[in-house]
Amino acid sequence: MSASQSNQRLIVAISGASGAIYGITALRMLRALKVESHLVISKAAALSLSAETDLSVAEVNALADHVHKVGDIGATIASGSYKTLGMLIAPCSVKTMGEIATGVTSTLISRAADVVLKERRRLVLMVRESPLHLGHIRAMAAVTEMGAIVAPPMPAFYTRPQSLQDMVDQTVARSLDLFGLDAPMTRWNGLAGE
């Protein structure tokens, strides 16, 4: 960890798409890196948590330094004057991405994302949907043109993962890399014999 990481903060949102484990893993990694985390969980994500994990919303909230209610448009992270590294939405539902793409800010998640974009900070969307139709692709193009990074959670098989958690860890660490955060991960070192 760089010395400057201890004074940084990152917004983590967990939306209703499948894959709440990505957001949970991000919170754990940020704690290990001593990066202040600000968590927002959508109403649909609260339902997904119970279906996909053994953790309660309260247990996930306990992993964050600060927790904001999805309807709290007056939260610190709703203002550009509140400095952050940016925002990771893990996972990012197509609904959330669509709101961001159109500038609709009906929840704190889409409002905070809008703030991150207008302040020219980093916004990473771990979009969870497959297959994609043209509307999804157009929304991905729109958020990319606005400055976001669309980073679907794709496993890196060169790491020779031994478990699903290995794949999740590598994917989340790679996403945190996009913020300049150095979470432990296996990096590509080229093919043997080169």
Rank of each mutant, 00 (worst) to 15 (best):
L47D: 10
M87Y: 04
A113V: 03
E59R: 01
L178T: 04
L134V: 15
G71I: 08
V104N: 12
E99G: 14
T144Q: 05
R111D: 11
I149E: 01
L108I: 01
S81L: 02
L47W: 09
I137N: 04
I149T: 14
G147F: 10
S48V: 15
Q162I: 06
V172N: 04
L49G: 05
E119C: 13
S163W: 03
A156Y: 02
A90F: 13
A151C: 11
A142V: 00
L63F: 11
H66Y: 12
I100L: 14
T144A: 13
S81K: 06
A101Q: 09
T171I: 10
V70P: 03
P153F: 01
A156P: 05
H68F: 15
A151S: 13
E119V: 02
A64S: 14
L88P: 12
A101R: 11
V127P: 14
T105K: 06
S175V: 04
A139I: 02
G86E: 07
I73T: 15
G147A: 12
S79N: 10
D54G: 15
L125R: 05
E119A: 13
L49E: 04
V143W: 09
L63Q: 14
M87C: 12
M87G: 09
I137K: 03
A64Y: 11
A62Q: 07
S175Y: 13
D72H: 14
A75E: 11
V172C: 03
P152E: 03
V57F: 05
L132S: 05
S93T: 11
P155W: 00
S93V: 04
G98D: 15
F157H: 06
V94H: 12
D65W: 11
R160A: 10
H68M: 13
P161N: 00
V127K: 08
V124W: 08
N61M: 07
S163N: 00
R138G: 01
E129S: 09
A173H: 02
Q162E: 15
R122H: 03
S106D: 15
G135F: 08
T84G: 12
K118V: 14
E119P: 04
A58I: 05
A142H: 07
V60W: 06
M167T: 01
V150F: 12
L47A: 07
T107C: 11
T102I: 03
H133W: 05
V70T: 12
D72I: 03
D169N: 09
K69S: 15
M126N: 11
T105Q: 11
H66A: 06
S110E: 10
G103K: 07
V172Y: 07
A78G: 03
S175L: 04
L164K: 05
S79V: 14
